[in-house]
Simulated scan of single mutants.
Amino acid sequence: MSESKKVLEVVEAFMKEMCDWESKFFEEKMKLVDEGKGTSDCNKKYKDLLGSIFLRYSIRDGRTWARLELLGSSSPAMYDPLRDQVSEPEIIAGKAYVEVQQVEGFESKFRFGLVCVDGEWKIKRKDTFRNGKWEKSSL
Rank of each mutant, 00 (worst) to 15 (best):
S52V: 09
D80C: 14
E27C: 04
R130M: 12
K5T: 11
L70A: 14
A93T: 12
Q102K: 12
V86T: 05
M18Y: 03
G36F: 10
R67G: 06
G132F: 15
F14Q: 05
E120G: 08
T128M: 13
K24S: 14
S75I: 11
V117H: 00
K126H: 03
Y46K: 05
Q101M: 09
K136W: 14
K24R: 12
K95R: 15
E69K: 14
S138M: 09
E90M: 13
S138G: 08
F54R: 05
K24C: 12
S74F: 00
G38V: 11
R111D: 03
E69G: 15
I53Y: 03
G94S: 07
K5L: 06
Q85A: 10
K122P: 00
R63C: 04
V86A: 01
D118C: 01
A93N: 15
S73R: 05
K133W: 13
V7A: 03
K24D: 15
S52Y: 00
Y57K: 09
K5R: 06
F110W: 11
E120R: 10
R130W: 04
R83I: 15
A96P: 04
V100Y: 00
G94E: 05
K16Y: 09
N43F: 15
R83D: 06
C116R: 14
G94L: 11
E17A: 05
K45D: 07
I53Q: 02
R67K: 09
W21A: 02
S23A: 13
R56F: 15
E107P: 00
